[in-house]
Design a protein around this nucleic acid. Structure first.
Lengths: 228, 228
DNA sequence: AAACTTGACATTATCGATAATGCAAGAATT
DNA sequence: AATTCTTGCATTATCGATAATGTCAAGTTT
C-alpha cells in the first residue's frame, strides 16, 4: 500500500516528485515548522502546474506534515512533544498488538522483504544518508505491519512513524544520532520474528519503540487502561 | 480543525459538497464496500470538473473511506472487523489518555460547545436522521479532544470515529439502533467532565467507548502492554 | 496450448487560464 | 478615536482540454 522506498523505483509522477522532495525537507527540518507554502511558488520551483502541487500538498496534509486552511494557506506543521509522545504511544500499542497476527501470517516473502530493508538501512548508514535510512526504517515497520492485514490502520501507523522520526530529527543533535546503530537495532526484531513466538516479537517491538527517543519518564506507563 | 457540523454552516465549496455526499453514502452503506468510483462519472453527477471530484476523493482517502490506486481506480474501502476493532481500541486509548489534558484546559466554551452537540444529537434522533446523529456524535468527541491540544493526533481520532460508526451501521440491523439512546449516552461524559476529575472522565469515556458495539470478548483486554 | 505482442478503450494526471475567496490597508462614517 | 466600508492584491478553487497510463481482449508467434 504505502511504499516509500520501492525495490523497483518506478518513475514518479510530477506530483509525487514534489511530494517526496517537500516531505524530505519537512522531516529533516530544512523546511522549518510554520513555514508558508504557496502553491504557485512551488509550481514554478518544480516546473509544473499549480494543481499538481496542490495534489502533493494534499497528500502531505494526509500525513499531518502540512496544515492546509481551505482558501487560505498551507504551512509546515508544528512538531509538538505532546503530539509526538502520544503518536509514539499509539505506535507502540499498534505494533505490539499486531505481533500475534504477524506471526500467524508470517511467510518467506515477509522475511525476505524485511531483510532487504535492513540491508538498505545499512547501506544508507554507510553513506551517511539519514533520510534514506528513515525511509527504509519506515518501510521495515510498515512491511511488518502489512502482514497483520489491517489496511485501514496502516496509514495511522505511517503517521506515527513519520512524526516520531521528525520529532527525533528536530529535537536531537545530529552527532548524537548513530545511523549504523539505528539500522542494527532492527536485527533483534527479525530474530524475534523468526522464533515464531508472538510474545517474543511483541517484547522486541516494545523495547525497540520505547528506546527510540527519550520523552522523559512515565511516557509508556499504563494510562487509560480502563478495559473490561 | 475538522468540523462536520458547523454551528454556522458556511457555504460549501463544490468539492466539499461532493465529498460530504459521498461520505454519507459510504458511511450509511448506500455505497457498498468495493464499489468503483470514477472521476468523470462523479463529475457529471455533481456537475463539476473532474479535478474537483478528484480533490473530494483524495480527502475521502485521507479518512480511509476510499482506496485510491494511482493511475488506476478508486473504490469504496472494505470494512473489516479486524480494522474496526483495532481502530476502536486505538480510539479508546486516545480518548482516555486525553482526559487529564482535557480537564486541565476545560473552560466554558468547551462545555457550551459539547452541550450544543448533545442538543443537535437529540434533534437528529427525534427526526430519525441517523447520519446527522453520527455527525454530531463525531463533532462531540472531536471537540472534547480538541481541548487536549494535539492537532496531529486529531485526524487519527477522526479516522477511528468514522470507521467505528461505519462498522456499526454496516453490521447491525437498523431497528436495533436506538438513536435517542445513543444521544443520551453522552450525558454521562458531560457530567464526568463537570466533576473536574480526570479519572472520572476517563472512566466515563472508557465505558462509553467499550459499550458502542460488541466485538466479542477480550477486545479491550490489556494486550501489548510492554511499557517500562 | 501457452506466452507474448498489439491496439482500442477506459481512466487518471497534468496543464494553462479564469473565477472565487480572503486579507489587509486605507477611506469614509459615526 | 473607534468602527465599518471599500478596494486592490495575494492566494486558492475550479474549469475544460489534452496527455499519459493502465487494462483487457484479440491476434500472433513459438
Amino acid at each position: 500500500m504505502i511504499s516509500l522506498a520501492e525495490s523497483t523505483p518506478r518513475q514518479r509522477s510530477r506530483s509525487e516528485t514534489a511530494e517526496h522532495a517537500l516531505r524530505r525537507d519537512i522531516v529533516l527540518g530544512t523546511l522549518a515548522p510554520g513555514a508558508a507554502l504557496r502553491e504557485l511558488e512551488l509550481a514554478e520551483r518544480f516546473d509544473c502546474a499549480q494543481g499538481t502541487i496542490r495534489e502533493a500538498l494534499m497528500r502531505l496534509s494526509e500525513d499531518g506534515l502540512v496544515t492546509r486552511r481551505a482558501r487560505r494557506d498551507t504551512h509546515v506543521a508544528q512538531a509538538s512533544p505532546d503530539d509526538a509522545g502520544e503518536l509514539l504511544r499509539i505506535r507502540h500499542d499498534i505494533e505490539c498488538r499486531a505481533a500475534v497476527r504477524v506471526i500467524e501470517s508470517r511467510d518467506d516473502a515477509l522475511l525476505r522483504d524485511l531483510d532487504t530493508q535492513l540491508q538498505a538501512m545499512r547501506i544508507a548508514a554507510l553513506r551517511d544518508d539519514e533520510y534514506s535510512l528513515l525511509e527504509h526504517d519506515c518501510s521495515f515497520h510498515l512491511r511488518l505491519f502489512e502482514a497483520a492485514a489491517m489496511p485501514v490502520v496502516e496509514p495511522v501507523l505511517f503517521r506515527c512513524l513519520v512524526h516520531t522520526q521528525r520529532f527525533k530529527v528536530l529535537n536531537s543533535a545530529p552527532e548524537t544520532r548513530d545511523l549504523k546503530a539505528t539500522a542494527e537495532r532492527h536485527v533483534s526484531i527479525l530474530e524475534a520474528l523468526m522464533t515464531g513466538d508472538p510474545e517474543t516479537l511483541a517484547r522486541a517491538l516494545s523495547h525497540h519503540i520505547t528506546t527510540i527517543v527519550d520523552f522523559g519518564p512515565n511516557v509508556f506507563a499504563a494510562k487509560g487502561g480502563h478495559g473490561t
